[in-house]
């Protein structure tokens, strides 16, 4: 009996050791980036690289946030925030509405539209980037928030997900709402949307990170440093030619760029799990 417990304890320790090792391996580069953002430029370039934080934390972060290299990082964070929020919220509202239309209304060409949306799943931004750029440029969307957001806002995946979810909602619910006097949009807002909140939370996390991590599209559509997003902005901070790279500030920027997605994941995860636990079944 005691042998069994011991054995189980050993296996327990072993599993934990493995997991801790994994965390260390994954966390180490981030730790190094953090350390690099707290020391001075000479300390970084001189080998061996420091592995413990220095005393320049406040200075480096203040410099990054307020002046940056080309443009203050605060500005880039704001741009990225607008873009990621715009894409996430835009995608969710558009796909909610189109899924609602496809599931609850019988209009001519309903299936055609569904398949059209579905086919766009197969066309990522990179494939359609030249025509999309052309359209955006002609619409005068260069260097603007709509230019950053609109071309990325349609989502076949989210539409498909909401369609599948709506199809599991019993028809009787829609009928009950109809008898209660709810017109279609009222039913959508009062009944369907609250019932979809778990799905919306999960999608928001995924889409926010998708929007935040966009690199190629912002690189094309913005030329003004004022409109840079942070993910592409980090690349812009690298010097060309023989200029000296301000590594502590670049690393501080990288750490700052990581924070919002982390915050979104942590806060939304709670909501997401609560939604799962309180499932309607």
């Amino acid at each position: 009996m005691s042998g069994m417990v011991e054995k189980r304890g050993a296996a327990h320790w072993f599993t934990h050791l493995g997991m801790i090792l994994g965390v260390v391996i994954i966390g180490f580069p981030i730790w190094l980036a953090f350390v690099a953002s707290t020391v001075s430029q000479p300390e970084i370039v001189q080998p061996p690289m420091p592995v413990w934080p220095g005393d320049q934390l406040v200075e480096n972060y203040a410099k990054a946030l307020l002046s940056g290299v080309n443009v203050p990082v605060a500005r880039m964070l704001f741009n990225s925030g607008v873009m990621a929020l715009g894409i996430a919220l835009g995608k969710i509202s558009i796909s909610l509405l189109s899924a609602f239309a496809i599931v609850y209304f019988r209009f001519p060409g309903r299936l055609v539209f569904f398949w059209l949306i579905f086919i766009t799943l197969m066309l990522p931004v990179e494939v359609r980037i030249v025509p999309t750029y052309e359209v955006a440029a002609r619409l005068g969307l260069l260097n603007s928030y709509p230019g950053l957001i609109l071309p990325l806002i349609a989502s076949a995946t989210a539409t498909f997900l909401f369609r599948q979810f709506f199809m599991t909602v019993p028809d009787e619910l829609a009928e009950a709402a109809r008898v209660d006097g709810a017109r279609p949009m009222r039913f959508f807002i009062d009944i369907l949307m609250p019932m979809s909140r778990t799905n919306m939370a999960a999608l928001f996390v995924i889409l926010f990170i998708y929007g935040w991590n966009q690199y190629l599209w912002p690189l094309l559509i913005t030329t003004d440093p004022e409109m840079n997003t942070i993910v592409m902005g980090i690349r812009q901070m690298f010097p060309s030619g023989d200029d000296i790279a301000d590594w502590p500030v670049i690393m501080a920027t990288a750490i700052l760029a990581m924070l919002p997605p982390v915050i979104v994941v942590i806060t939304m995860q709670k909501l997401f799990i609560r939604g799962l636990v309180e499932s309607e079944k």
Binding site: E172, L173, E175, A176, I191, P194, E280
Partner: peptide, 8 residues
């Protein structure tokens, strides 16, 4: 038949 109560 299934009551069709609004679950939320």
């Amino acid at each position: 038949q299934n009551y069709a109560l609004y679950p939320h």
